[in-house]
């Protein structure tokens, strides 16, 4: 209980810092970088619930981000809904896709499951490419406010929103890690047969984990088109989402909620620095090299290295 109080206090400090920075910091690029890094904190944390705790490797993070993003785009265009409802819609759409992904685990395990998640990305990208209402291959420009009464610009407000989502996501992952639900997922990862023999309803738990993970990814995707005020399939389905959301927990450590956070902050910041100083192409290369390096030299990530 006391550790939860400390966690909540830490989360509040993060939010307060984000809000203060949004009001008084001048450099707009820092906000873009912060948006990307915070989004990755949510995505890596979400990925880790199914991939780290449950052991089901999801290569489809891009599909979930895009599902959240395009749910927001479609509803904004259709009914011009307020931001909280758009985020809610993205969350719901991600949850629906997540539960479908969870059902796949009934028949597919290991590498076959991972390939299926990649296939989902390709299928959904094809759907979006041919869906003219949300811009198809051309992409779509969103009509959204530019000012925010409190934070100055709308984008700064979105950064604070993303910080809030990151705190909530990490809180959820932390709860999963210490709960009976989380132990059941870890049992599934270590041996599905033994978990079942211990009374764990394995399929139900996997569907729940995939739904939760998908909902969090969908939520993180919803503000993206609003932030960019333009979105097309390459931005939403980017391979970088799939690779980074997997690389970050692996680099940080998959066994504990803090692992994905460490990975996302380190790798996300490095990617932004490289994008600015070298090029945006090189940043994917960096991710790949770091992932290979960690898988070979420190398979349990930074946390494993530190002996946790």
């Amino acid at each position: 209980m006391r550790s939860w109080v400390r966690f909540a206090a830490g989360g509040l400090v993060v939010l307060l810092l984000a809000a203060l920075a949004a009001r008084w910091l001048a450099n707009d690029y820092l906000f873009f970088a912060a948006f990307v890094v915070l989004q990755f904190v949510v995505l890596a944390t979400a990925w880790n619930i199914l991939g780290g705790y449950g052991g089901y490797v999801n290569f489809g993070t891009g599909a979930f981000v895009a599902t959240g993003a395009y749910a927001a785009v479609a509803l904004q265009k259709l009914a011009d809904l307020p931001l909280p409802l758009l985020v809610l819609a993205g969350t719901a759409a991600g949850a629906v896709l997540g539960s479908a992904l969870g059902l796949l685990t009934l028949r597919l395990r290991g590498i076959y499951f991972a390939i299926a998640t990649l296939a989902i990305t390709i299928i959904l990208e094809t759907v979006v490419l041919n869906w003219d209402y949300v811009g198809g291959a051309r992409g779509i420009t969103l009509d959204r406010p530019h000012e925010d009464p409190f934070f100055g610009t709308y984008n700064r407000m979105l950064v604070v929103l993303m910080a809030g989502m990151a705190v909530v996501a990490v809180g959820i992952a932390r709860w999963v890690g210490v709960s009976a639900f989380g132990r059941a997922l870890s049992a599934i990862r270590d041996s599905e047969d033994a978990a079942e023999a211990c009374g764990v309803p394995t399929l139900r738990r996997k569907v729940q984990a995939a739904t939760l993970s998908g909902a969090m990814m969908g939520a993180a995707g919803a503000p993206l088109p609003l932030y960019l005020s333009f979105v097309d399939h390459t931005a939403a389905f980017g391979l970088n989402y799939a690779v980074s959301a997997m690389a970050m927990p692996m680099i940080g450590g998959t066994g504990h909620w803090i692992g994905p956070v460490i990975g996302a902050v380190l790798l996300g910041t490095a990617q932004q620095a490289v994008t600015v100083t070298i090029s945006s192409e090189v940043n994917v290369l960096i991710t790949g090299l770091l992932l290979i390096g960690f898988v070979v030299a420190a398979p349990r990530g930074i946390l494993g290295w530190l002996g946790r």
């Binding site: 132990r183 270590d190 047969d193 009374g199």
Partner: peptide, 19 residues
């Protein structure tokens, strides 16, 4: 088929919690 990454104690918590 132990839950190899978990502690010995947590291995037993799984069936107890499910029950």
């Amino acid at each position: 088929l132990p839950f190899g990454s978990m502690s010995v104690l947590d291995n037993l918590r799984v069936p107890l919690e499910q029950g």
